[in-house]
C-alpha cells in the first residue's frame, strides 16, 4: 500500500493507505479525528468539509493521496488552548447547532468564507452554504452565527 504524508492541524503525519482511501477515511480511521463526518455519498451534504492548504474541500471526495504534502486542518484544530475559535463561539452563542452532526462541516466552511469575505451579507452567507446541509436548524441561527463571527473577527 502506498504511504501518504501530510500535516494535519499542524502535526506531521504519515500513513499507509489504499489508492481508493478517501481523505475523510484517513482522518477518521488512521488519525482517529472523528470530528469530520460523512453524511452522504454524493458530495452534497458538506459534513466532511476540512481545509486543504487553506481552502475548504469535501474530504469525502478527495483521495488521501491527493493531500500528499498538504496542510490539512480539521474541526479539531479550530480551538486554541481550549478557547473556542470565534466561529465556534458564535455557533454556541446563537444556537447554530442542534444535533451537531453537520456542525464541523458548517464551521469549517464558514471559516473559509470569512477568509474570503470579512463582512458577508445574509444573502452571501446563505449562498455560500449551498454545499452544506443541516436538517435541524432551518439555517437561521447558523447564518446569524456566521455573521456575528464576522463582526467579532473584524474586531
Amino acid at each position: 500500500m502506498p504511504s501518504v504524508s501530510m500535516t494535519v492541524n499542524g502535526k506531521a503525519v504519515t500513513g499507509e493507505v489504499e489508492g481508493r482511501t478517501l481523505l475523510v477515511e484517513f482522518l477518521r480511521q488512521n488519525l482517529n479525528l472523528t470530528g469530520t463526518h460523512v453524511g452522504c455519498d454524493t458530495s452534497q451534504c458538506g459534513a466532511c468539509v476540512v481545509h486543504v492548504n487553506g481552502k475548504s474541500v469535501k474530504s469525502c471526495t478527495t483521495l488521501a493521496l491527493q493531500a500528499e504534502g498538504a496542510e490539512v486542518s480539521t474541526i479539531e484544530g479550530m480551538a486554541t488552548n481550549g478557547d473556542l475559535h470565534p466561529i465556534q463561539a458564535a455557533f454556541k452563542e446563537h444556537h447554530g447547532l442542534q444535533c451537531g452532526f453537520c456542525t464541523p462541516g458548517m464551521v469549517m466552511s464558514a471559516a473559509d468564507l470569512l477568509q474570503q469575505n470579512q463582512d458577508p451579507s445574509e444573502t452571501e452567507v446563505r449562498e455560500w452554504l449551498e454545499g452544506n446541509i443541516c436538517r435541524c436548524t432551518g439555517y437561521q441561527n447558523i447564518v446569524k452565527a456566521i455573521q456575528a463571527a464576522s463582526q467579532e473577527m473584524k474586531g
Binding site: 477518521r28 479525528l33 472523528t34 470530528g35 469530520t36 463526518h37 460523512v38 480539521t74 474541526i75 479539531e76 479550530m78 480551538a79 473556542l84 465556534q88 455557533f91 454556541k92 452563542e93 444556537h95 447547532l97 451537531g100 452532526f101 456542525t103 464541523p104 464551521v107
Partner: peptide, 19 residues
C-alpha cells in the same frame, strides 16, 4: 441558557455511533 453539549459538538468531540 447556552447549551452544555455544544462545546463537544463544536470541537469535533461529539461521539456518534460511527465514531
Amino acid at each position: 441558557v447556552r447549551r452544555k453539549e455544544d462545546n463537544r459538538f463544536l470541537t469535533g468531540k461529539g461521539r456518534y455511533t460511527d465514531d
